[in-house]
Design a protein around this nucleic acid. Structure first.
Lengths: 219, 219
DNA sequence: TTATTTTAGTGAACGGTGTTTACTTTCTGA
DNA sequence: TCAGAAAGTAAACACCGTTCACTAAAATAA
């Protein structure tokens, strides 16, 4: 279908670019941004350090691509669940829980995806700013907003809720849990004299808690 | 009252240590952990870089002290509100909102306080592990747990809630909002066609949302 | 007071980082 | 075929945290 617009040279170039990225991905997933140095990376793929700069403007740009494709993974997974036909409550809970689960599997990716922004590429786009809607992160946010709008429509959530606003609040809450788990390996450990809750169950508990904040109160 | 256990030498030493810390604090608050280099710091206070190591074992140790005294500030502020006699609902909301406000005033401190842990000093202590109760972070957590326990006692919160567990969930939610604001300067921006909510109001909205998750549902 | 030991502070170096520049080689399009 | 672009490199620049051998000064013991 798609005409082969790429020349052989171009294809070879993309292949090497991809090889660099995949080598970077391996190191980054295991050791994070500090463990990944241009020099080590270059040695891994048998190039000189300077060669990397023929393919990427900077280390930041390289890592940005890793982060973006990581969020693509999250987006796919969440989308898959959002499109299910399971009952709304369950679906909503699974959605947010999945977000956390995937993120926790690649802690360095997730942490870096947020940590880098303030310093680097200038202020990161948020909902309502150009660029956000296009980013994978932005698309994931839109899925979340859609679900909340659906909840309001079917009467599960309070009617005065603004989906955009609520989505940000829910996102913040799930982001917080994720960061906690990512940064504090033993989270959520509990005192010896109390019932120990597994991480998986805590994720569900937290998701329930967050969703409950949106629900109708029949008083 | 307190006997002067410190020799003149010791006092002078502490004074220089404090001068190093305060110079570090200034740079760190403005430029974060990456902007603060031992070499720059040494130049600021007219010492050689090596001199710093007579007072601190490593850069990490120095920064740990900045983080700890930052959380002392948070703890103080939250404690002050928790001990008020204002109505419970309001008090709870102010408590969590204050946590976010203080954190946002020193974004680099807050981010570093969590980001550093996974890599550096070994796994950070959580509730139930030795060391946590003593840290300022741990003490702040205990204030939060106390408030939730009070809410359960007076019947404002669902009775089946375990305060320790719920406190972790609430903490995660507020942590998430804080991180969002810290990392994404324009958070929570909204679309042009929607009502724009100020950061301050969003913090309160989020706090309400989180607390609502704990409340009794009268169905 | 003198002799000894501890402490404060330093300059130079080690091994590491991201990045740039000047240069050569290789490939490609006309 | 041949000019020009692109791929790749070695060497350097300007940083970084940290250590080590060393001197000078202060505290302690005799």
């Amino acid at each position: 279908m798609t005409a082969t617009v790429s020349s052989p040279a171009e294809r070879r170039r993309n292949k090497i670019r991809a090889r660099i990225l995949s080598a970077a991905e391996r190191v980054f997933a295991r050791e994070g941004v500090d463990g990944l140095s241009i020099r080590r990376l270059a040695e891994n793929i048998d190039y000189s350090p300077a060669a990397i700069y023929k393919y990427f403007k900077s280390k930041d740009e390289l890592i940005d691509e890793l982060k973006e494709s990581f969020f693509e993974l999250i987006l796919e997974s969440v989308h898959k669940i959002a499109d299910t036909s399971t009952p709304f409550d369950e679906r909503a809970r699974d959605c947010v829980a999945t977000y956390v689960r995937i993120a926790v599997e690649k802690p360095y990716h997730y942490a870096a995806a947020f940590a880098g922004e303030a310093a680097a590429d200038g202020p990161a786009p948020v909902d309502g700013e150009p660029g956000f809607e296009l980013s994978k992160k932005g698309q994931a946010f839109n899925v979340l907003r859609g679900m909340i709008a659906e909840g309001v429509e079917i009467g599960a959530f309070r009617s005065k809720i603004d989906p955009s606003l609520a989505a940000k609040s829910v996102w913040a809450s799930m982001h917080g849990l994720t960061m906690m788990i990512v940064h504090i390996p033993s989270f959520p450990a509990l005192k010896a004299d109390q019932a120990i809750m597994s991480r998986e169950n805590f994720i569900l508990f937290h998701a329930d808690q967050v969703i409950r904040g949106l629900e109708m109160h029949h008083e």
